[in-house]
Write a protein that binds this DNA or RNA. Structure first.
Lengths: 203, 203
DNA sequence: GTATGAAAAACGAACGCTCGTTCATTTTTG
DNA sequence: CAAAAATGAACGAGCGTTCGTTTTTCATAC
């Protein structure tokens, strides 16, 4: 007769995921060994296989269990705002704040993009896209003040701005152009996204 | 007395780099073996070491020899335009066109970012930044019509837009949101960058 | 509370394999 | 004919995974 799930087993599973996520972020997937994961998780090599069937299963478990979109998506969908500007501004600040709490995970998404060619990430996007697109369609249709009527442009440019913000600020800018950007970089990106780089009179 | 550089040796060196760049882009750095590189380059395993001292030396050789910035930077620095809008528009179109010819290399930069933590890319940025910043400073100072007077914001947002364009269009959008974006996506990004997502009257 | 015993978990040596690199040797080049 | 280039077997190391065994856990019966 099969035993119920034990607390000890679940704790070890989480310890393995915690150790693996750290190592994957530090040195990538292929460069991380099962022995390193076992050592950091505090158990023997073979013990891992009582909880995960393979190294890739650990990676998939991390993507599924730890992905921040589960917490962030409902907040974004519930973002309020009478005007398009208010909605986009609120949604942006929610994402920056929440995603900023889990910056490590963004690195992991890049590793996934490179080493698994985005297979797991694309799966996740296919799940998210149907939930996000209707919201942006509604904004395009019901709210005035936008320069585009194409929801695809709106949603992509919005997430494109977020991607570009995190990439330039986290991965590149801090090491090379660090001192040149003001501290409220997120607001600078949002302002630019909303109003453009040109003065209205010039357009 | 040392022999002059032979034609054969140089051709083999290039064949190794060509084989390696393909494989690194297909499967990443760590997942590519020297045996695979040798096979695709059409020579024996040991022969590689007559031309490169190590696997990482091949990667560095690729980054140095094949980086498209060498061709693109002079074009961008020479971009003309009476107004800021004209300059930014011309520079953007030059980069999109030239970088679009070597899309594979963008994947390689992401691999570098993940597997070497951007060490080689940062080195390159340190070389490029001093050449680019004065140009954007000059634009901020001498040209009217910009909503920012901070050259750091201008240069980062400009390259941020380009990064976001290539990421969303190449790596993510084509597989998941492919049919939703108009074909002239680059122009949509540029228009958004120049004028923002909001109508001027709303701002 | 305590003893029981089967399932769960932990252990670590061992397996088969691939890795990057080296090296003695042969072939090609100019 | 000497330097350069190419060869492929061999080396030591590390890899992911397996497996026989021991230890721990915990619902159950006392």
């Amino acid at each position: 007769m099969p035993r119920e799930k034990s607390k000890k087993g679940e704790a070890t599973r989480l310890a393995i995921e915690d150790a693996a996520i750290e190592l994957f972020m530090e040195q990538g997937y292929h460069a991380t060994s099962m022995r390193q994961i076992a050592e950091r998780a505090g158990l023997a090599l073979g013990g891992i296989y009582n909880h995960f069937s393979s190294k890739e299963a650990i990676f998939e478990g991390i993507i599924i269990d730890k992905h921040p979109y589960k917490q962030i998506l409902p907040l974004v969908l519930a973002a309020e705002g009478e005007t398009a500007e208010e909605f986009l501004s609120n949604a942006f600040h929610i994402i920056v704040e929440e995603l900023g709490k889990q910056r490590e995970f963004i690195n992991l998404m890049f590793i996934e993009l490179v080493e698994f060619k985005g297979a797991h990430g694309a799966m996740m996007l296919r799940e998210i896209a149907p939930k996000v697109l209707p919201v942006f369609e509604k904004i395009v249709k019901s709210r005035k003040g936008l320069r585009t009527t194409n929801p695809a442009i709106l949603v992509r440019s919005f997430f494109g701005m977020i991607i570009s913000y995190f990439i330039t600020e986290m991965l590149i800018a801090n090491s090379v152009l660090g001192k040149l950007m003001p501290k409220n970089a997120a607001d600078a990106y949002l302002d630019l996204y909303l109003h453009g780089i040109l003065k209205p009179s010039e357009s």
